[in-house]
Protein backbone atom coordinates (compact mmCIF):
# COMPACT_ATOMS: atom_id res chain seq x y z
CA UNK A 1 0.00 0.00 0.00
CA UNK A 2 1.22 3.47 -0.80
CA UNK A 3 2.21 5.75 2.13
CA UNK A 4 -0.26 8.59 2.68
CA UNK A 5 2.44 11.23 2.00
CA UNK A 6 2.88 9.92 -1.56
CA UNK A 7 -0.86 10.09 -2.28
CA UNK A 8 -0.51 13.88 -2.30
CA UNK A 9 2.02 13.77 -5.15
CA UNK A 10 -0.62 13.18 -7.80
CA UNK A 11 -0.71 10.59 -10.55
CA UNK A 12 0.60 12.97 -13.20
CA UNK A 13 3.71 13.87 -11.14
CA UNK A 14 4.82 10.33 -10.34
CA UNK A 15 8.28 9.18 -11.40
CA UNK A 16 9.37 11.60 -14.19
CA UNK A 17 5.79 12.62 -14.97
CA UNK A 18 6.49 16.03 -13.40
CA UNK A 19 8.85 16.82 -16.28
CA UNK A 20 6.05 17.25 -18.85
CA UNK A 21 4.13 19.58 -16.54
CA UNK A 22 7.32 21.54 -15.82
CA UNK A 23 8.06 21.96 -19.54
CA UNK A 24 4.51 23.18 -20.22
CA UNK A 25 4.80 25.73 -17.44
CA UNK A 26 8.20 26.81 -18.77
CA UNK A 27 6.73 27.42 -22.26
CA UNK A 28 3.88 29.43 -20.68
CA UNK A 29 6.46 31.44 -18.73
CA UNK A 30 8.47 32.17 -21.90
CA UNK A 31 5.35 33.41 -23.69
CA UNK A 32 4.20 35.62 -20.80
CA UNK A 33 7.71 37.01 -20.21
CA UNK A 34 8.07 38.01 -23.86
CA UNK A 35 4.61 39.57 -23.96
CA UNK A 36 5.77 41.68 -21.01
CA UNK A 37 9.00 42.58 -22.84
CA UNK A 38 7.12 43.54 -26.01
CA UNK A 39 4.63 45.64 -24.05
CA UNK A 40 7.56 47.41 -22.45
CA UNK A 41 8.54 48.74 -25.88
CA UNK A 42 11.24 46.19 -26.75
CA UNK A 43 11.62 45.94 -30.53
CA UNK A 44 11.31 42.24 -31.41
CA UNK A 45 12.17 40.84 -34.83
CA UNK A 46 9.88 38.61 -36.94
CA UNK A 47 11.18 37.02 -40.13
CA UNK A 48 9.44 37.47 -43.49
CA UNK A 49 6.65 34.99 -44.31
CA UNK A 50 5.87 34.80 -48.03
CA UNK A 51 2.36 33.37 -47.59
CA UNK A 52 1.31 36.35 -45.50
CA UNK A 53 2.75 38.89 -47.91
CA UNK A 54 0.54 37.26 -50.53
CA UNK A 55 -2.66 38.17 -48.69
CA UNK A 56 -2.66 41.79 -49.91
CA UNK A 57 -1.76 40.61 -53.44
CA UNK A 58 -4.67 38.15 -53.46
CA UNK A 59 -7.21 40.74 -52.26
CA UNK A 60 -5.84 43.29 -54.75
CA UNK A 61 -6.36 40.79 -57.55
CA UNK A 62 -9.93 40.10 -56.42
CA UNK A 63 -10.64 43.84 -56.32
CA UNK A 64 -9.30 44.30 -59.86
CA UNK A 65 -11.46 41.42 -61.11
CA UNK A 66 -14.52 42.54 -59.11
CA UNK A 67 -14.98 39.02 -57.79
CA UNK A 68 -15.41 37.86 -54.21
CA UNK A 69 -12.80 36.66 -51.75
CA UNK A 70 -13.70 33.31 -50.19
CA UNK A 71 -12.55 32.30 -46.71
CA UNK A 72 -12.94 29.00 -44.85
CA UNK A 73 -11.87 28.80 -41.17
CA UNK A 74 -11.46 25.02 -41.26
CA UNK A 75 -13.55 22.20 -39.89
CA UNK A 76 -13.12 22.67 -36.15
CA UNK A 77 -15.75 20.69 -34.24
CA UNK A 78 -16.09 23.50 -31.76
CA UNK A 79 -14.77 26.99 -31.33
CA UNK A 80 -11.11 26.47 -30.40
CA UNK A 81 -7.79 28.29 -30.64
CA UNK A 82 -7.37 27.23 -34.29
CA UNK A 83 -10.77 28.56 -35.36
CA UNK A 84 -10.24 31.81 -33.42
CA UNK A 85 -6.85 32.30 -35.07
CA UNK A 86 -8.32 31.62 -38.54
CA UNK A 87 -11.09 34.17 -37.95
CA UNK A 88 -8.49 36.66 -36.67
CA UNK A 89 -6.62 36.39 -39.98
CA UNK A 90 -9.90 36.69 -41.87
CA UNK A 91 -10.62 39.87 -39.92
CA UNK A 92 -7.50 41.34 -41.54
CA UNK A 93 -8.54 40.06 -44.98
CA UNK A 94 -12.05 41.49 -44.49
CA UNK A 95 -10.65 44.86 -43.42
CA UNK A 96 -8.69 45.19 -46.64
CA UNK A 97 -11.69 43.94 -48.64
CA UNK A 98 -13.98 46.43 -46.85
CA UNK A 99 -11.68 49.32 -47.77
CA UNK A 100 -11.90 48.40 -51.45
CA UNK A 101 -15.61 47.49 -51.33
CA UNK A 102 -14.71 43.98 -52.36
CA UNK A 103 -17.33 41.29 -51.67
CA UNK A 104 -16.39 38.53 -49.24
CA UNK A 105 -17.72 35.06 -48.46
CA UNK A 106 -16.89 33.29 -45.21
CA UNK A 107 -18.15 29.70 -45.04
CA UNK A 108 -18.45 28.02 -41.66
CA UNK A 109 -18.64 24.36 -40.79
CA UNK A 110 -19.50 24.88 -37.15
CA UNK A 111 -22.37 26.95 -35.77
CA UNK A 112 -20.29 28.34 -32.89
CA UNK A 113 -17.53 29.45 -35.28
CA UNK A 114 -20.24 30.94 -37.51
CA UNK A 115 -21.57 33.20 -34.74
CA UNK A 116 -18.06 34.23 -33.70
CA UNK A 117 -17.06 34.96 -37.29
CA UNK A 118 -20.25 36.94 -37.93
CA UNK A 119 -19.65 39.18 -34.89
CA UNK A 120 -15.99 39.68 -35.74
CA UNK A 121 -16.51 40.54 -39.41
CA UNK A 122 -19.39 42.89 -38.58
CA UNK A 123 -17.13 44.68 -36.08
CA UNK A 124 -14.44 45.00 -38.77
CA UNK A 125 -16.84 46.73 -41.18
CA UNK A 126 -18.12 49.00 -38.40
CA UNK A 127 -14.62 49.98 -37.30
CA UNK A 128 -13.76 50.82 -40.92
CA UNK A 129 -16.80 53.11 -41.02
CA UNK A 130 -18.44 51.14 -43.84
CA UNK A 131 -21.10 49.21 -41.90
CA UNK A 132 -23.48 49.67 -44.84
CA UNK A 133 -21.17 47.55 -47.02
CA UNK A 134 -21.47 44.59 -44.66
CA UNK A 135 -23.71 41.87 -46.03
CA UNK A 136 -24.87 39.58 -43.16
CA UNK A 137 -25.17 36.73 -45.68
CA UNK A 138 -21.49 37.00 -46.54
CA UNK A 139 -20.73 35.00 -43.38
CA UNK A 140 -22.71 31.80 -43.66
CA UNK A 141 -23.14 28.43 -42.07
CA UNK A 142 -22.99 25.73 -44.75
CA UNK A 143 -23.18 22.32 -43.07
CA UNK A 144 -21.64 20.43 -40.18
CA UNK A 145 -21.11 17.26 -42.24
CA UNK A 146 -17.65 17.05 -43.75
CA UNK A 147 -18.47 16.20 -47.36
CA UNK A 148 -21.74 18.11 -47.46
CA UNK A 149 -19.64 21.12 -46.43
CA UNK A 150 -17.04 20.28 -49.07
CA UNK A 151 -19.75 20.04 -51.75
CA UNK A 152 -21.37 23.28 -50.58
CA UNK A 153 -18.14 25.29 -50.57
CA UNK A 154 -16.99 23.84 -53.91
CA UNK A 155 -20.34 24.80 -55.40
CA UNK A 156 -19.96 28.35 -54.07
CA UNK A 157 -16.44 28.63 -55.50
CA UNK A 158 -17.68 27.57 -58.93
CA UNK A 159 -20.88 29.64 -58.93
CA UNK A 160 -19.34 32.83 -57.52
CA UNK A 161 -16.08 32.40 -59.50
CA UNK A 162 -14.05 33.62 -56.54
CA UNK A 163 -10.84 35.42 -57.38
CA UNK A 164 -9.02 34.64 -54.14
CA UNK A 165 -9.51 31.87 -51.61
CA UNK A 166 -8.18 31.51 -48.09
CA UNK A 167 -8.31 28.09 -46.45
CA UNK A 168 -6.91 28.48 -42.96
CA UNK A 169 -7.54 26.22 -39.97
CA UNK A 170 -8.25 22.55 -39.34
CA UNK A 171 -8.69 20.72 -42.64
CA UNK A 172 -8.97 17.03 -43.31
CA UNK A 173 -9.71 14.96 -46.44
CA UNK A 174 -11.75 17.76 -48.02
CA UNK A 175 -8.70 20.06 -48.28
CA UNK A 176 -7.83 18.88 -51.78
CA UNK A 177 -11.45 19.20 -52.97
CA UNK A 178 -11.40 22.90 -52.01
CA UNK A 179 -7.93 23.57 -53.34
CA UNK A 180 -8.41 21.83 -56.68
CA UNK A 181 -11.84 23.37 -57.26
CA UNK A 182 -10.43 26.85 -56.62
CA UNK A 183 -7.42 26.06 -58.78
CA UNK A 184 -9.69 24.97 -61.64
CA UNK A 185 -11.19 28.48 -61.86
CA UNK A 186 -7.79 30.16 -61.53
CA UNK A 187 -8.29 31.61 -58.05
CA UNK A 188 -5.19 32.69 -56.14
CA UNK A 189 -4.99 30.53 -53.02
CA UNK A 190 -3.47 31.01 -49.59
CA UNK A 191 -3.87 27.97 -47.34
CA UNK A 192 -2.75 26.43 -44.10
CA UNK A 193 -3.78 23.37 -42.17
CA UNK A 194 -2.80 22.53 -38.62
CA UNK A 195 -3.21 18.90 -39.66
CA UNK A 196 0.21 17.82 -40.92
CA UNK A 197 -1.36 15.14 -43.13
CA UNK A 198 -3.13 17.81 -45.19
CA UNK A 199 -0.26 20.27 -45.58
CA UNK A 200 1.27 18.33 -48.55
CA UNK A 201 -2.06 18.52 -50.39
CA UNK A 202 -2.17 22.27 -49.93
CA UNK A 203 1.47 22.59 -51.01
CA UNK A 204 0.66 20.61 -54.17
CA UNK A 205 -2.47 22.57 -55.06
CA UNK A 206 -2.21 26.11 -53.63
CA UNK A 207 -0.15 29.17 -54.49
CA UNK A 208 0.97 30.00 -50.95
CA UNK A 209 0.96 27.77 -47.88
CA UNK A 210 1.55 28.70 -44.27
CA UNK A 211 3.28 25.70 -42.75
CA UNK A 212 2.83 24.70 -39.11
CA UNK A 213 3.21 27.56 -36.67
CA UNK A 214 3.35 30.20 -39.43
CA UNK A 215 -0.43 29.97 -39.13
CA UNK A 216 -0.20 31.16 -35.52
CA UNK A 217 2.39 33.77 -36.43
CA UNK A 218 0.06 35.39 -38.96
CA UNK A 219 -1.72 37.80 -36.59
CA UNK A 220 1.58 39.00 -35.11
CA UNK A 221 3.10 39.40 -38.57
CA UNK A 222 0.15 41.29 -39.99
CA UNK A 223 -0.57 43.63 -37.07
CA UNK A 224 2.70 43.85 -35.10
CA UNK A 225 0.66 44.13 -31.89
CA UNK A 226 3.07 43.86 -28.93
CA UNK A 227 1.07 41.06 -27.26
CA UNK A 228 1.11 38.94 -30.40
CA UNK A 229 4.74 39.68 -31.30
CA UNK A 230 5.85 38.93 -27.73
CA UNK A 231 3.92 35.68 -27.75
CA UNK A 232 5.58 34.71 -31.03
CA UNK A 233 9.05 35.40 -29.64
CA UNK A 234 8.10 33.30 -26.58
CA UNK A 235 7.27 30.44 -28.94
CA UNK A 236 10.67 30.89 -30.60
CA UNK A 237 12.40 30.66 -27.20
CA UNK A 238 10.46 27.45 -26.55
CA UNK A 239 11.55 26.07 -29.91
CA UNK A 240 15.17 26.87 -29.07
CA UNK A 241 14.73 24.99 -25.81
CA UNK A 242 13.33 21.99 -27.71
CA UNK A 243 16.22 22.10 -30.21
CA UNK A 244 18.68 22.19 -27.30
CA UNK A 245 16.99 19.17 -25.74
CA UNK A 246 17.10 17.27 -29.05
CA UNK A 247 20.84 17.96 -29.37
CA UNK A 248 21.51 16.99 -25.74
CA UNK A 249 19.29 13.92 -26.09
CA UNK A 250 21.15 12.80 -29.21
CA UNK A 251 24.51 13.24 -27.46
CA UNK A 252 23.40 11.49 -24.26
CA UNK A 253 21.87 8.57 -26.15
CA UNK A 254 24.86 8.22 -28.48
CA UNK A 255 27.28 8.04 -25.53
CA UNK A 256 25.08 5.92 -23.24
CA UNK A 257 24.05 3.35 -25.83
CA UNK A 258 27.73 2.39 -26.42
CA UNK A 259 28.25 1.26 -22.83
CA UNK A 260 27.36 -1.65 -20.56
CA UNK A 261 25.11 -1.65 -17.51
CA UNK A 262 24.54 -3.76 -14.43
CA UNK A 263 21.43 -1.83 -13.36
CA UNK A 264 17.90 -1.90 -14.73
CA UNK A 265 14.98 0.31 -13.82
CA UNK A 266 11.59 -1.36 -14.05
CA UNK A 267 8.38 0.42 -13.02
CA UNK A 268 10.41 3.08 -11.22
CA UNK A 269 12.48 0.63 -9.18
CA UNK A 270 16.22 0.06 -9.72
CA UNK A 271 17.52 -3.49 -9.53
CA UNK A 272 20.93 -5.06 -10.13
CA UNK A 273 21.26 -7.36 -13.15
CA UNK A 274 24.11 -9.28 -14.85
CA UNK A 275 26.17 -7.01 -17.11
CA UNK A 276 24.64 -6.36 -20.54
CA UNK A 277 24.64 -3.72 -23.28
CA UNK A 278 22.63 -0.56 -22.63
CA UNK A 279 19.22 -0.65 -24.31
CA UNK A 280 17.23 2.34 -25.55
CA UNK A 281 14.89 2.07 -22.54
CA UNK A 282 17.88 2.32 -20.14
CA UNK A 283 18.99 5.72 -21.42
CA UNK A 284 18.53 8.86 -19.36
CA UNK A 285 16.45 10.61 -22.03
CA UNK A 286 14.13 7.64 -22.49
CA UNK A 287 13.49 7.46 -18.75
CA UNK A 288 13.00 11.23 -18.53
CA UNK A 289 10.25 11.24 -21.15
CA UNK A 290 8.64 7.89 -20.31
CA UNK A 291 7.55 7.76 -16.66
CA UNK A 292 7.65 4.22 -15.32
CA UNK A 293 4.71 3.86 -12.98
CA UNK A 294 4.62 0.98 -10.57
CA UNK A 295 1.19 -0.39 -9.73
CA UNK A 296 0.24 0.86 -6.27
CA UNK A 297 -2.76 0.26 -4.09
CA UNK A 298 -4.28 3.11 -2.10
CA UNK A 299 -6.89 2.02 0.42
CA UNK A 300 -9.73 4.48 0.78
CA UNK A 301 -13.04 4.24 2.64
CA UNK A 302 -16.04 3.27 0.49
CA UNK A 303 -18.92 5.71 0.23
CA UNK A 304 -21.86 4.11 2.14
CA UNK A 305 -24.30 5.57 -0.41
CA UNK A 306 -22.43 4.19 -3.41
CA UNK A 307 -24.49 2.02 -5.73
CA UNK A 308 -22.36 0.23 -8.34
CA UNK A 309 -23.51 0.87 -11.88
CA UNK A 310 -25.03 -2.07 -13.71
CA UNK A 311 -22.25 -4.08 -15.31
CA UNK A 312 -19.50 -2.43 -13.27
CA UNK A 313 -16.78 -4.82 -12.23
CA UNK A 314 -17.87 -7.48 -14.72
Amino acid sequence: MMPLSQVYIGDQYRDTGWFGVFMTLLVAAFVLLNIRRARGGKDLYIRRIAGLNAIDEAIGRATEMGKPVLMVPGLSDTINAIAVQAVNIFAYVSRIAARFANPILLCCYNAAVYTYAQETIRDVYQSEGVADRYDPDSVRFVSDRQFAFAAGVSGLILREQTAATFFLGEFYAESLIFAETANSIGAIQVASSTETTQTPFFIAACDYVLIGDEFYAASAYLTRQPVLVGSLVGQDWSKLMIILMIILGTLFNTVQIQGKTTWERTKGVWSQIPERSVKQSDTFMSQLFKPQLEKVKVERPIDPNYVPEKGAGE
Partner: peptide, 22 residues
Protein backbone atom coordinates in the same frame (compact mmCIF):
# COMPACT_ATOMS: atom_id res chain seq x y z
CA UNK B 1 5.48 24.43 -33.86
CA UNK B 2 1.72 23.86 -34.09
CA UNK B 3 1.58 22.66 -30.48
CA UNK B 4 3.52 25.65 -29.18
CA UNK B 5 1.36 28.01 -31.24
CA UNK B 6 -1.83 26.48 -29.86
CA UNK B 7 -0.50 26.70 -26.31
CA UNK B 8 0.47 30.37 -26.71
CA UNK B 9 -2.86 31.17 -28.36
CA UNK B 10 -4.76 29.36 -25.59
CA UNK B 11 -2.82 31.28 -22.97
CA UNK B 12 -3.62 34.61 -24.64
CA UNK B 13 -7.31 33.70 -24.91
CA UNK B 14 -7.49 32.49 -21.31
CA UNK B 15 -5.93 35.66 -19.94
CA UNK B 16 -7.95 37.80 -22.39
CA UNK B 17 -4.77 39.20 -23.91
CA UNK B 18 -6.12 38.22 -27.35
CA UNK B 19 -8.74 40.61 -28.66
CA UNK B 20 -11.47 39.24 -30.98
CA UNK B 21 -10.43 39.90 -34.55
CA UNK B 22 -6.95 40.87 -33.44
Amino acid sequence: GVGLGALAMGLRLWLSLEKPGS
